Amino acid sequence: MFLYLIAILIIAFYFYGTRNFKYWEKQGVKYEKPLFLVGSNLKQFIDKVSVSERFAAFYRAYPNERFVGFFEGNNPSILIRDPELVKRVLITDFRYFHHRGLHPHKTEIEPLMRNLFTVDGDIWKLMRQKLTPTFSSGKLKAMFPLIVERTEKLEKIADDLAETGKEVDIRELMARYTTDFIGACGFGIDSIALNEENSDFRKLGKRIFTTTKRDHFVNLLKRMAPETFKYLHFFDPEIEEKTISIIRQIMSARNYKPSGRNDFIDMMLELKEKGKIVGESLEKRNADGTPKIVELELDEQLLAAQVFIFFAAGFETSSSASSFLLHMLAYHPDVQDRCQKEVDEVLEKYNGKLCFEAVKDMKYLEMAFK
């Protein structure tokens, strides 16, 4: 009798774990064959690739299809290949497709995932509405002196390293440089990452972009059964606690009011001073079909999440792009000479001072960078 019950439980578990796997077949849509419980999610970990590489390969595998099905755990999902359909999803019918799937939960639980990059629905819309004007050229220009300060430090370090004649890991140097100026522009503090390879900020930056076995496992569980594992956090508690603690200390030191530093935290505190964000809902409708008016309270955690993504996205992209440019210039000395000539000529026009306008005048350098 006991073995009979076990057999029934195993069969029931199998059917539960594959309950939706016929979905795309019934719709007549080509799809990637799923695995029990995990669906299509395991492929990324087996192939040891990033999400973008996984979906780029998936996209190329079906050259004649307008769209292809796959499974997030047991949930049917779709990859759209046809540009006209993509246009409809992103523009014409956006109100039905605003959930981007970067976070599997409909209600946000994890503090750092409430950032503009991963959050969905009304929080995304209202935060985007307020944050977009924040990145005006005037605001960025006000931050520029903070970048110049760090650039002068980098110049001195580069000169010293050149004199030693030793090999230098330029990727690490640029990561420390960008960590330093993002620390200044975002957090309003001197992270000393340029001078200290193992500074707290550099360690935090490294940890954010180092995917551990724990991270892979949690990601798989959350994609497989989001509601069952919703209390597991994507970000390791070490990242979450460190980030929120740093931001809380800085905001507290400023008495939760703008300090005049013109950094990103000041921008967030200016938004907070204006009170609740009010706007039309993406998710809720009135009886007549018009969007409801919703409010968003800018609490400490929501502000911390935006500062976190400013740091994470800012330092990694900047350091990757700048170190790759330096790598390419080393292999193309003729282009390097031309860039150097332009820098010298432009700086001469501005009395040898590096400023926002001078950088905008360096057209050839910009082309090389891009």
Rank of each mutant, 00 (worst) to 15 (best):
I91C: 11
R54S: 12
P133D: 07
N64T: 15
G121D: 07
P76H: 02
R150V: 10
P83C: 04
R114F: 03
I80C: 05
F144Y: 09
N75I: 12
L116W: 03
T92G: 07
G69V: 12
K125M: 13
F97D: 06
P111C: 05
R128M: 07
L126A: 03
P76W: 03
T118W: 00
V119M: 03
G101K: 08
F71P: 02
N74L: 11
I147D: 00
L85I: 11
R88K: 12
P63A: 08
R95Q: 14
R88L: 11
E108W: 04
H103F: 14
G101R: 09
K153I: 15
N74K: 08
I147R: 00
I91Q: 12
F70L: 12
F58D: 08
V89I: 15
I147H: 00
E72G: 11
L90P: 01
R150Q: 13
I157A: 02
R66G: 12
G121E: 05
G138K: 12
G138M: 09
I80T: 01
H105K: 11
S52H: 11
R54F: 14
K48P: 00
R150Y: 01
P145A: 06
P145R: 02
K139L: 03
E155C: 15
M127V: 07
R66S: 14
K139I: 08
V49L: 05
K130V: 15
G73I: 00
A158K: 01
Y59C: 03
P63N: 09
A158R: 02
I157Y: 03
H98Q: 14
P111A: 07
T134F: 05
K130T: 15
R114T: 12
I123S: 04
D82I: 06
F144T: 02
E149L: 09
K106Y: 15
F144V: 07
V119A: 08
A57Q: 13
F97C: 12
P76K: 00
V49P: 02
F135E: 07
L112H: 00
I157G: 03
R88W: 00
G121I: 08
V68F: 05
E108I: 12
V148L: 03
H105I: 12
E53W: 01
T132Q: 13
L112E: 04
I91R: 11
Y62D: 06
P111G: 05
M143P: 02
L116M: 09
R100T: 03
L102D: 00
T132Y: 06
L126N: 03
M113V: 10
D122Q: 06
N64W: 06
K87S: 14
T118D: 13
I78G: 05
M127Q: 14
T134N: 02
S137A: 06
